[in-house]
Design a protein around this nucleic acid. Structure first.
Lengths: 344, 344
DNA sequence: CTGAAAGCGCTAACAA
DNA sequence: TTGTTAGCGCTTTCAG
């Protein structure tokens, strides 16, 4: 930087106000005793000089930077866009900034970011959707057990830490049940990454619902890939090209559902007349597609907000136990699911 | 924070390596001379202690934080999601982190963020899409003329600074021309915020194309609101409910186009048979809708990348002139536009 | 109530 | 080549 503009420091303020720098510091932080009159003097000087406290210096002493690290796979993904917005808003409310890190779930990128964040002295980390076996969170827990860290949206196996989750099992169960109650017997599941917590849990819900409704699980109706449009499209195409194609599909998230719509369209299948589709998340996609998507709503904003509240509290007050906050998903019925038509 | 874990500092490294802290600093920064043997000693100590340099301390001295501030209206907006990803990626490549700020184009929020960023000593600011008259960028130029600042995607009136833009006029012209060449005579324009640079420029392109093709501008066919789905929907509904409804609409961005689809659907108008729609940006939305959207592609990633390259260069090397980098948009033809059918 | 002084962790002259 | 020293801008004892 060509930092040519001389920075104004508390030293300058002190000079103008004709007091010592410690006094300036005191009134600035409202700490210790200061007479009303000196307070005035200082404030006047501050205004006059347009003084702004350098937070870097404060950070060095206090070991607090008022910044949070947010680790997500990809901000282009609409789900993380919504989540990130909620997080950033809430952080801002509490006087924190957030540093964004996109990892694409790449473990080495993840660890690079983590390192950087630690070196910068961030106050806490929000880790959205690490994989079930993420070694980086394991490591950081060892090396920096003191660091406020929250896992958002998933769980890491055999590790005890603060988590904010949606009840994925329940969501999967509800989604499948909804389809089943509409009379569908051939119900597919197209999920995301097999090593992702939500994929697995939603699948368990799917399984259990089938069981409860006495429908036999058919492995041809289960495909796992990624939480992306093209995955939904590819797997959808595969699944729907079968002679005994399913009449309904539970998509692991809304993006996958969008891909399924595309596949169905390509195969000349009408949603919902010939194919019912239910998504997960209730992201922006759900209301864009035609017909609008029936989906399981994840309370994204609420979860983001809660996460920040929690971490800020930990940063400020400390805490010596771990907790898991679970949000309940809800079924949002729209136009993409309908009663099965008997084609016999 | 309950920072109970004792931080390891260069002092510790110095002790273990049996050298002075300045020597440690030298080998760490590869500055000055150091014998191979001491280098070894230091590195060994670093490894042994798992030492990580505290960047806060460095920042205080060097007045560089390796972090950039990114100011955008809303990360939920898919366009900014794509842009932000490109920016963050490129920043990371150069060893910078980015602090995300969502302002909703609210000037006072904007100024709050700006203040915060400055106090944190960020090295530069990327300001995406301030309004034409944004007073905050004006002010910051006065108070911190030394601060690397790039405007991305718009221009602020009467102010000379580094800008990265897409040629909005050209894009508007191309979009409109495309419709006109398809034989449409009644061509509408539904744009975003009237005080946004891109809305205005795209409108100018629209105007000029009409003129060149000898089509008279009809004010009933022009509506400005926001770059959002619901705006496209509302304005689309208004415009398409007219007896002399347009047969084609140029949407200020893809989100507006999505809204127009919805409106058309509601009115029983088929795209593209009864209504041609062209968008702007070529965001994810374009390929989701059915039919896929013909649109004007903004090279979002390239722009984000270029912006970071530029600002990093300025941060590192300084620069005493301002430049404007303009990217060219391109027409992407998909299924939402077609030759006008003569209904007479 | 206020000031002097030490120091956060690191860098950068300046000596040696 | 290496060590000593003086800070960066601020907070925080500790005297006064």
């Amino acid at each position: 930087m060509i930092g040519s503009v001389k920075m104004v420091t508390i030293k300058d303020v002190a000079k103008v106000a004709n007091v010592s720098i410690s006094t300036v510091s005191r009134v600035l932080n409202n700490s210790g005793y200061t007479s009303a009159s000196t307070k005035e003097k200082v404030h006047k000087a501050v205004d006059e000089l347009k003084f702004q406290k350098n937070m870097v210096a404060t950070a060095m002493i206090k070991k607090q930077t008022s910044t949070l690290g947010l680790i997500i796979p990809d901000i282009k993904n609409i789900f993380y866009g919504e989540l990130t917005r909620a997080i950033e808003d809430e952080a801002h409310k509490h006087g924190f900034n957030v540093i964004l890190c996109n990892t694409d779930n790449d473990l080495s990128k993840e660890s690079e970011y983590l390192n950087f964040l630690l070196r910068k002295g961030i106050d806490g980390i929000i880790f959205s959707t690490p994989e079930i076996n993420d070694r980086n969170v394991r490591e950081i827990m060892k090396t920096r057990p003191d660091l406020p860290l929250i896992i958002l949206g998933s769980q890491v196996k055999d590790v005890r830490l603060d988590e904010v989750l949606v009840d994925n099992f329940e969501g999967g169960y509800q989604a499948t049940k909804h389809l089943l109650e509409l009379g569908h017997q051939k119900v597919g599941y197209i999920g995301g990454q097999p090593d992702s917590y939500s994929t697995v849990e939603r699948y368990k819900g799917y399984q259990e619902a089938l069981e409860d409704y006495k429908v036999k699980l058919n492995n041809n109706y289960v495909k796992l890939d990624e939480f992306k449009i093209h995955s939904g499209y590819n797997k959808g195409l595969e699944m729907l090209s079968r002679k005994d194609r399913p009449t309904a599909i539970f998509a692991g998230n809304d993006a996958i559902a969008v891909g399924i719509y595309k596949a169905a369209r390509e195969l000349g299948l009408n949603v919902p007349e010939q194919l019912s589709v239910i998504g997960f998340d209730d992201s922006q996609f759900a209301e864009i597609v035609d017909p609008e998507l029936t989906t399981i709503r994840t309370p994204i904003s609420e979860m983001g907000q809660k996460t920040v509240e929690l971490i800020v509290k930990i940063v400020k007050e400390g805490k010596n136990f771990k907790e898991t906050v679970t949000f309940q998903p809800t079924l949002i019925e729209r136009g993409s699911t309908s009663r099965v038509v008997d084609v016999h």
